[in-house]
Design a protein around this nucleic acid. Structure first.
Length: 549
DNA sequence: AGTTTCGGCGCC
DNA sequence: AAAGGGCGCCGAAACT
């Protein structure tokens, strides 16, 4: 591999060196403060496989994505090769298509090979990116963002390697308790078959509860009109089929999504190994590929069991979103309640909802998500009176989103604008687009597309500033926690939006608990600067994930 | 017959 | 009473 020494200005400070082996090259240079490379996801797993860990890195292609976003150029190709072409004015190569949605080991055979750049070219792109940081609204924050994101890439690669401790025996036991015996031939297990029979008996004819169309028809024949078989619509219906039907749906879900075949597919050698993908969404939240790792049902968490003599430190950020909203909006009232470690929803409720915590929580989340009706909306007025700056902050974001202006998180992560220009990246990101063909013209108001999508974009932007700023903060948290764990046997094994699990020897558990608390405070200071807002965690030291709640 | 979309629900 | 932000996953339905 090629190695380039960088000077204090981040530019090429000497001749490009050639090393025969990546791992050896890295191992031989412990003094390197930060490795700059094209893509952590492609480089770092190979290093980890040979037992080499790096302290810090700078991921050029991830930074390119963030910088392009900040510059309002969301749709442009984000590869290092594309960045170089833009720099030199040449034809810009399109990004390789996203990986096929179809899972399966073979898919990687057909993935296009990444374009590798000669090292001096890569350094040139890097140097230009450093200059582009300076042109952002808050260069110091943008540098922090790309650094934090790169750290997140390291964490993700390390978690992918570690895997989540998983007891197949316990999992099978849980499945048997819930679903009963399996029958030969791979059909429904006993309990599901029984429930399906109960549903059919209640309707007086054979009904397949896993087929929504069949269920809707059966209800219609019983004189009950339902538009769908969603739980919230069905559960208020007065009919003997409802109870077994809802129970069936719950268990069916477990069976198809986390049943025996899931176990077969995803658990090897006592570990569940999903692929964590940092920066998987535009808000900065991570996603996972494989095994539905971010949707492990509560009952299945009994199968997450620490190694003998080890513990799981399960840590959950308390009321993360309203605390983040307090930090970014600087609303005096909200900062005051977020400046305490006690239950924030209770404090809000004491101030604005005469003690009804549930109402307060609904109102806060409604404000963040852009609720348009129901109790949350009603209570929004009370929230607005007490915390005007906080509500105004998300209202402003929503308006900006509706008008197609750029919306950013605290550190500068930028929401894709609804270009209305057929922007593919925006489409991919799931931002609602107006379809010109369906936009009514010459009409004041028509129920449907245009206004619906505009409002949806507003809700997206409203949520983006909070969810995305929270993601900014959690990246700094992970980076700090990773730093501490580097000196111990402890390993980060799971991360889900506002929750982290560390697997460690029993004797390290209390140190890890303290490390999480310290990391949260440090992340708060680094991300938001001077702020009274606290970021407490609820931590539990357990042998089994299910015991954490 | 193979691929994409939909319905529903799990998690935050 | 009515139904909002982000995801992934599965089988069935709907498409080509």
């Amino acid at each position: 591999m090629e190695i380039a020494p960088l000077g204090p200005d981040g530019l090429l400070a000497g001749p490009v060196l050639w090393e025969p082996d990546l791992a050896t090259a890295v191992r031989a240079r412990p003094q390197v403060a930060r490795w700059v490379w094209r893509s952590t996801a492609e480089v770092y797993p190979r290093l980890l496989a040979t037992g080499v860990r790096v302290e810090r890195c700078y991921d050029i292609e991830d930074a390119e994505t963030l910088l392009l976003g900040h510059e309002g150029r969301y749709g442009e190709p984000r590869s290092a090769a594309a960045a170089l072409a833009r720099l030199r004015g040449g034809p810009v190569p399109p990004d390789p298509p996203l990986r096929s949605a179809a899972p399966g080991a073979q898919s990687s055979l057909f993935e296009p090979r990444a374009v590798h750049l000669p090292l001096p070219d890569l350094v040139e792109v890097y140097a230009e990116q450093q200059r582009r940081h300076d042109a952002t609204t808050h260069p110091d924050r943008m540098r922090l963002l790309t650094a934090a994101e790169s750290a997140g890439m390291l964490v993700a690669a390390e978690m992918n390697r570690a895997g989540l401790p998983w007891s197949a025996d316990v999992h099978r036991q849980v499945l048997h308790e819930l679903l009963g015996e399996r029958y030969a031939g791979g059909g429904e297990p006993r309990r599901l078959a029984e429930l399906a029979d109960e549903v059919s008996t209640a309707f007086g004819r054979r009904v397949r509860p896993d087929l929504p169309a069949d269920v809707v028809k059966a209800f219609a024949q019983a004189g009950i009109k339902v538009k769908s078989t969603r739980r919230w619509e069905i559960e208020s219906v007065d009919h003997p089929a409802v109870k077994p039907l809802l129970e069936y749906k719950k268990l069916y879900r477990i069976w198809v999504a986390h049943g025996w075949s899931w176990l077969q597919d995803w658990v090897r050698e006592g570990r569940f190994r999903p692929e964590f993908l940092a920066h998987g969404t535009v808000t900065g939240r991570w996603v996972t590929n494989g095994g539905g790792a971010l949707q492990i049902p509560k009952v299945i968490r009994r199968a997450v069991v620490a190694d003998p003599g080890w513990r799981l430190v399960v840590a959950d950020a308390d009321q993360m979103e309203p605390r983040v909203l307090a930090a970014i909006s600087r609303d005096p009232g909200l900062m005051e309640v977020a400046g305490r470690e006690s239950d924030l929803y209770q404090s809000v409720s004491d101030r604005a909802f005469s003690g009804d915590r549930a109402q307060a929580k609904l109102a806060v989340l409604g404000a963040v998500y852009g609720q348009t009706s129901g109790d949350g909306l009603k209570n929004l007025a009370a929230l607005r009176r007490r915390f005007p700056k906080a509500v105004a902050y998300v209202d402003d974001a929503a308006r900006a989103g509706e008008e197609g202006r750029l919306v950013r998180t605290w550190l500068g992560r930028t929401c894709p604008p609804a270009a209305g220009s057929g922007d593919e990246a925006t489409e991919e990101a799931g931002i609602p687009q107006d379809d010109p063909a369906e936009t009514p013209t010459g009409t004041e108001w028509v129920p449907g597309y245009a206004s619906t999508n505009t409002r949806a974009r507003g809700r997206f932007a409203r949520n983006f500033v909070v969810q995305g700023s929270a993601a900014d903060w959690t990246l700094l948290l992970l980076a700090a926690l990773r730093q501490t764990c580097a000196n111990m046997a402890a390993e980060l094994v799971f991360f889900q939006h506002d929750e982290v699990i560390v697997h460690c020897p029993e004797e390290e558990a209390e140190t890890v608990v303290a490390a999480i608390r310290d990391a949260a405070e440090l992340a708060g200071r680094l991300t938001f600067g001077q702020t009274p807002v606290r970021f407490p965690f609820t931590t539990a030291v357990v042998e089994c994930y299910a015991d954490a709640k």
